[in-house]
Write a protein that binds this DNA or RNA. Structure first.
Lengths: 183, 183
DNA sequence: CAGACAACCGGACCGCCGGTCCGCATAGCC
DNA sequence: GGCTATGCGGACCGGCGGTCCGGTTGTCTG
């Protein structure tokens, strides 16, 4: 990749973030992103393939730290902790991530609306949660329950809950739900 | 409403259903619906206001029987049964409804993507589930749990589960999840 | 039955969007 | 300094949801 290509790639990602923060997920078209990045529309598509690809990449970037933490021993998130604690810790982290990136979550949802299960980040999360649920509650359909738990972070739902009680309410509702489910 | 208006209204609803059944939710544009109904596009919008309105109305139609059953004593669905049984019965009915109307669920989801909580049918369902959860598990955030339970009927998830085990698998996964949650 | 009016219809039209394409520019290498 | 592959920009496309208005038609009245 040429140096200018790398620069443009970064400019596009940052422009997309700014527009998300400024105008909400619904008003971020790729024309606008391109314009804000000081770049042609074609460049956006060459770099990211599609709208879907752009938001997937953006989410992957924001989720990277969490992805690493999951595989690293030493916190309740990592291997070594009991599955129930790991799962609760993971969901709590996810709540934080959703809070800090609500507009991105919304945009990502829309962009991945068809074939939402193909998104790499979602797939990783789902695999993780499925495994943990399988250990903690072997009687359940773990994959199904994992989709349901990840569904708690639907952007509209998160927004609604946070409007009433902020991230604290979100965290406690999620935790309460997960604890009830795990028994 | 004039007689021709009533006829057209019905023709549009039936055409939309046929198109949903024939091609999936993604390929049903309002032009196509209008053409299939033998009607101008303007007529579709005059009758239903928007794409959203059309699919909301269609879902409301299909959900009417369930809505009545909920308020009528005499089955596990209706008032008089214990909340836990009512909730499980309701979710089971919803699974059946989702199975029989998968394409409609998908189209409805897309059409209501912004402001999904404004859909009248969803609001009714959510109120019902919230009340039942509140009785069965007063320790939970009932409204939040209700959204989560209704999220189980996301069209993509339903489709995926049914691809693996048909409606039987869907019903048992839903039931298992709900039972675990209610303890 | 005739006439008149309101309700309704059709489809051309609009702006916007995601996505494509190709002639031109330039970064990076010899 | 010159050559080429890589990348760039933005005009362009098809399709969408939604609007609008000139013409049509159901219906009510006398």
């Amino acid at each position: 990749m040429r140096a200018d290509a790398t620069r443009n790639r970064e400019a596009i990602l940052r422009a997309a973030e700014e527009l998300l923060a400024a105008h909400g997920a619904e008003h971020v078209s790729l024309d606008r992103v391109a314009a804000a990045a000081g770049v042609g529309k074609g460049t956006v598509f060459r770099r990211f393939g599609s709208r879907t690809g752009l938001f997937q990449e953006l989410l992957a970037e924001r989720a990277e730290a969490l992805a690493r933490a999951i595989d690293t021993a030493g916190s309740p998130l990592g291997p070594g902790s009991p599955p129930r604690a790991r799962l609760l810790a993971f969901l709590d982290e996810l709540a934080g991530l959703a809070e800090r990136n609500l507009a991105l979550f919304a945009a990502h949802e829309r962009a991945c609306a068809d074939d939402k299960y193909a998104d790499p980040t979602y797939v990783r999360w789902h695999g993780h949660v499925t495994a943990l649920v399988g250990e903690a509650r072997p009687d359940l359909d773990a994959s199904f329950a994992a989709h349901a738990l990840l569904g708690l972070f639907d952007a509209d739902l998160v927004g609604r809950v946070m409007a009433e009680g902020g991230v604290t309410r979100l965290r406690s509702s999620v935790r309460g739900f997960a604890e009830a489910l795990l028994g």
